[in-house]
Design a protein around this nucleic acid. Sequence first.
DNA 1: GGGTAGGTATACAGATCGGTATAGTTAAGG
DNA 2: CCTTAACTATACCGATCTGTATACCTACCC
Lengths: 195, 195
Amino acid sequence: MGSEDRLQRITMTPAARRVLEAAARLFYERGIHAVGVDLIAAEAGVTKKTLYDRFGCKEQIVVEYLADRDERWRAFLAGHLDAAPAAPAARVLAVFDASREWAAQHSHKGCSMVNAHAEISDPAHPAYPIITGQKQWMLTLFTDLARDIIPERAGHLGRTLMLLHEGALVAQGLNIYADPIGHAREQAHALLAAT
Amino acid sequence: MGSEDRLQRITMTPAARRVLEAAARLFYERGIHAVGVDLIAAEAGVTKKTLYDRFGCKEQIVVEYLADRDERWRAFLAGHLDAAPAAPAARVLAVFDASREWAAQHSHKGCSMVNAHAEISDPAHPAYPIITGQKQWMLTLFTDLARDIIPERAGHLGRTLMLLHEGALVAQGLNIYADPIGHAREQAHALLAAT
DNA sequence: GGGTAGGTATACAGATCGGTATAGTTAAGG
DNA sequence: CCTTAACTATACCGATCTGTATACCTACCC
């Protein structure tokens, strides 16, 4: 949480919000390097001057895009976990349910973090820790949930759930077959039942 | 096979080969849009004119890059499958072994097809069928292998293996934890043993 | 021995890139 | 009433982008 605060601190005026919305849509849909600031400004209905007054540089827009997406996803997931039954296995399945719903709404092209990682190679890039941070956080989450099921093999189970989840996101983005997240959920269910 | 022949047909002179090698390395490492033709030509020790005489346009270099990588991977995998025991389960594990070895050698940043898909949004792009084609081919392979184990649930098992495999490639590329492909192999083994 | 294929070297064209400069507008707040 | 923040509009900068043009070299092959 602290890391996002240090990175993502920008006066979120109405125009800035429109810029971020347009940038998020374009970056996700076409890729980061393929989208220029002129296009972002035009799509946001905003002058380039305003854009640069708010964000300073394109790199900062990228950082805000990923940090915002990360924040929204965590909040979305938290909502699903709060609404889920207390049974440990049900909470694991709630993660997959959240992912399926999220994918249907915002991400038909796979995980934005994975996609961004394909374009951002330099670990010194300010957006880099956001990408790896979310994945580490997800692994920790799965491991924590696994600890309530089989404490002695929490790490092992957590890593397996992570694999199923990431694989499902890729399969969903590349349209390899229908409803891979549902399939992953089913596999997770079988895995937990066998324990 | 037929589709690659139609797409990838370029006179592979020594200079063209050097261009392709440089482009493959740079595209994979830094992303496709982030790498310019001038850099490719310089790294290949070749004039821009030669580059354009061989490939015509940058897009064609991208196509050759992905088609070549796809071809190499399939040949690499075929070698591992040929060397594997005839037992169906062993052949499944051989795929994961091949992936682990391939990743250690050529791909520390995840699957080049998935990464390229993050940058190529347009399905009309000539490289698009190469990307989706490889994933479909892998799903078919897993399903065919699964058919020799439990014919009545081959599709189901094939999709699960695909999930584990894709998830492992992502986890490996993002460095989420150590040796995810080995972990996926282990899970595949447990899955087949339980059948 | 002349044509052709595969090169090198260099210069350039037109578009687009990220980013800046200048000038003016509008609304809120002490 | 005057300042300031948040904007619009437009023009511009230098760098970099994909792609082309011109001229020359060299080996091979019929």
